Simulated assay, not measured.
Amino acid sequence: MSSTSSSSKSLAFPSATQAQIIRANQRDIIHVSELREQTESVLRTWLGTRWLNRWDKEVELSAKLVYYWLTTGRGMLVLTLGEEYTDIWQRSKGARRLPSRSLRLALILLPTIPSYLLARFSQRISDLPARAANILRNLPTILEVISEVNLAIFYIRGAYYDPIKRIMGIQHITPTPEDPNSQPPSYSLLGILLLVRLTYRLITALKSLKAEESNGPSNQQNAASKNMYIDTVNVSKILNKTEAPDYVKDAEKDAYTILDAARLDRQTREGRKCPLCLEERTESAVTECGHMFCWPCIVDWGREKPECPLCRQALDLTKLLPIYNL
């Protein structure tokens, strides 16, 4: 009886406006990002940058799962921080009631697990049969296009900001009554621009496909463009690696220093620790501000945060200097 009454009451609530749904999603993205950054900061302090670089995708997945499990997953009336901020609730359109436990679980897993698997195992696609590898290689682009098409439809006229919620029929309602004297903002122009962009991408992709078919696989220009190198290493070899590189090296076997680490006393070797990985420094590099790190450690750090991890001065990776005698 209580579930029937609550369902009938939910029907009286108006649908959430596009502005409310957009703000809720934006705030959820901000909170997930903050949770991930705080988690990475703690793990970097405990386990070092090298460990974090190896398991960064798992950390990102964990942050998303924890956030949405503690909000959407805990109960029907538990909202995400974004939904609570904009005062909107989820409602199953078909059943005209709040989403069941199975639907809430699907809302948590479907947007997170497939993207994680594609990102983590993308380097092993080459081991699969050619047809399956080609499908999986193009799958991220296909999902991106589907997401943009859904977003364009939402901006023009709709209530589904997320394609997963569109498929599962999860809408948003709000207890805030509609104001007949005000008109909600229109996002139709954004939707039209997105459709124009998608049309341009489609035309470009078709032209590229036609050009590849006409040139053939033996075209010399295509072969030359693929023969690219980064630090004397062929790009194809980097892309086809099945495992993440292990930067942990023995300082006594470091080929990028003229020092013989085996002859250094213990106190001197203790002073050669990298502040990021907390291991004895190898492939040493110095920043403009004068701090020394392992070359892979400071490069990985600088790609995420362009500042020195010790003094917070601006970090320009193009101005890193390798050092061989310290």
Rank of each mutant, 00 (worst) to 15 (best):
S2C: 06
S3Q: 09
T4I: 10
S7E: 15
K9R: 14
K9Y: 11
S10H: 04
P14T: 05
I22V: 12
R23Y: 15
D28A: 01
V32M: 11
S33V: 08
E37V: 08
T39C: 12
E40I: 07
D56T: 08
K57G: 01
K64N: 06
T80G: 09
G82A: 03
A95C: 08
L98Q: 12
R101D: 05
R101K: 11
L109G: 01
S122A: 12
P129I: 04
R131G: 00
A132S: 14
A133S: 15
I135S: 06
N138Q: 08
E144A: 13
L151D: 02
Y155T: 09
P163N: 10
I164D: 02
I167N: 01
G169T: 05
N181K: 10
P184A: 09
R197K: 15
L198I: 15
T204W: 04
L209W: 11
K210Y: 02
E212A: 08
E213W: 10
P217V: 04
A223E: 13
D231A: 13
V235T: 09
E243Y: 02
D250H: 05
Y256T: 10
R263Q: 14
L264T: 08
C274K: 00
C277V: 00
T282M: 01
S284Q: 14
V286P: 02
F293D: 09
W295R: 15
I298H: 02
R303D: 10
L310M: 14
L310I: 14
C311N: 11
L317F: 12
L320M: 06
